[in-house]
Design a binder for these strands. Structure first.
Lengths: 338, 338
DNA sequence: CTGAAAGCGCTTACAG
DNA sequence: CTGAAAGCGCTTACAG
């Protein structure tokens, strides 16, 4: 049915292997022969069958990305940027992205990750999300199967990983506010501190506050959540402090928008009475009024770096044991709120 | 290196083909033998090599989704919902999603679409986006390669397609406002009318307005754009009409949020002085204050239906020539702005 | 009900 | 520099 390498060989009047050599550059082929071959390929619109190729080369030219059936990992807009970043690196290197979705019945994500490895349908894996499972890594590592953690806890340096520097992002946010003249700076965490990124931001905040010399005042920290209304109550609490903060670092943009609403409702002018810095630089920060100064996570770069690293691992440009831990800086996008 | 069907056969003490028969149910195997085989599979963690399987069955169990290098198609948050919907259907049926990114150099998306077909790395294709190219379809159709258009112009019923009923969505939005007592209802289109979805919404609006009996007043229509500030000027213009509208249907949520801001700045109360209905039901409509009543596009269902349809096509449950045109209804999510 | 064998479309030593 | 042949890991008629 489909055109095969045999058809090309016949059309060009050469042996099958010569076509293969010419296409892959795996042996020298006379210029003239080459031209005949490439003409035949173009004429017939020949593309090597990936399954046949994969069977012998043990390479699929696919990168796997596993997604939970509940799709929690897809919840955030941010994933789109990651995929774009992945795509840039992948397209450049001629890889495709294989998104594997869990079957509704099978509850164990770990097993599913292992399955895409066992089926050999990808040459490497990008593992992203917050879920920190240990088991799949073991089998993957022991079999030296290439994979890169993206935005996950980096397992004591035993796995290649790419992450955003959340700690530095929060630190910079405080520093930015200090430069604007603030000293009483509060933090609302993006969610519980059990989540890695949340803890990192918390730590960055503390480091910056301690450097300020006033010491760390626990009453200036509130724990936010994924509740869409998270930020209202925390703002009210923070602003009713005897020594109220003049600035708030909100762990996520949505929370920042709630902070602004509540503060405005209480009669505060933003940013004059209260400065607000958000996190994630999502569309929310652009649409809010006033627009929100926000710490941008380099999601696109993270995707790009993760895919580039994985490809180097696959192609042997980086040794498997030479564990890479890439941490990318966050940048502050200045807008009206601070 | 990896465990093969031979290993399983040896472990279970049967012939290779018996293992294959047992796994695929393609021939009867005695219960007892079956048990030995499945025990061996479990013990060895055997999973059939996808390339080998694909080579002989001519099936990859992959669905292709082509993405332009510029990733325009990925621009909207909405794609995430589509992917979730695709994933639901795919996971259930044991297919993976192959996202193929264009190489930076190759400028022709059409060729790239054809390449994933020619390489035989997917059993079918989901084509989404607004770009309407004709050429790839021809080759695909003539070779009877399964593909489904998602949110694209549906090419005079020659291609299977899944779409949202934008026309009805706009019609319903007007009807909804009429029920709230409005008659002077304006429309700001989501973008130029060259885009299919935009035109459909425009037509739905017109149909509803004409049914009202007051006839179609062109001055009540403004053409919006993708400019982030689109909506400001249009609102100003519409509200300065001698007979100003009491309600505005905004073609996108972002535009609706601009309408609200501008109207509020001009002293109008929402929804009392001016009712506003948005489109797309994005996070913007939830975060705006007042929150925005919005027409929801069934992106998740569209993804699910598109994948389900494609799988039926692939597996022969639907004849290739029995062209399916699935149009899914939009629903109005009532909030504060109307 | 089970086994031996051919073949899917490639790549890669191995000769010439 | 090019050709004939083996083999990758499966599935599927074909015998028994």
């Amino acid at each position: 049915m489909a055109v095969t390498i045999k058809d090309v060989a016949r059309e060009a009047g050469v042996a099958v292997c010569t076509v293969s050599f010419a296409m892959n550059g795996s042996a020298h082929v006379a210029e003239e022969t080459k031209k005949r071959i490439f003409d035949a390929i173009e004429k017939l619109n020949y593309r090597p069958n990936q399954s046949a190729r994969g069977l012998v080369t043990k390479k699929t030219n696919n990168i796997g990305l596993v997604v939970e059936e509940t799709a929690e990992g897809l919840e955030n807009t941010i994933l789109l940027d990651v995929i774009k970043g992945l795509g840039q690196a992948l397209g450049k290197n001629n890889y495709d992205l294989l998104l594997s979705f869990q079957k509704p019945q099978s509850r164990k994500l770990d097993e599913h990750v292992l399955d895409v490895y066992r089926k050999q349908s990808a040459d490497g894996l990008i593992l992203m999300g917050t879920a920190s499972s240990e088991r799949p890594y073991e089998e993957l590592v022991s079999k030296r199967f290439p994979f890169v953690l993206l935005g996950r806890p980096y397992q004591e340096k035993v796995c290649h990983s790419v992450n955003a520097d959340n700690e530095q992002g929060a630190y910079d946010a405080v520093q930015y506010l200090v430069r604007k003249g603030h000293r009483r700076i509060a933090l609302i965490t993006p969610c519980s501190l059990e989540v890695d990124a949340s803890l990192d931001r918390y730590n960055g905040y503390i480091r910056a506050m301690e450097e300020l010399g006033d010491g760390f005042d626990e009453s200036l920290v509130a724990i936010g959540s994924f509740d869409p209304d998270s930020g209202y109550a925390e703002t009210e609490k923070l602003l009713s402090l005897k020594q109220r903060p003049t600035a708030i670092v909100a762990g996520r943009d949505v929370i920042a928008s709630r902070v602004i609403e509540k503060a405005q409702a209480l009669g505060y002018k933003i940013p004059d009475d209260l400065a607000v810095v958000g996190f994630d630089n999502t569309v929310v920060s652009q649409l809010a009024r006033p627009s929100i100064t926000s710490v941008e996570l380099p999601m696109r770069s993270m995707g790009f770096e993760a895919a580039s690293l994985l490809i180097k691992l696959i192609e042997g440009e980086i040794r498997y044991d030479d564990v890479q831990t890439i941490v990318l800086p966050c940048a502050i996008r200045e807008r009206e709120s601070a």
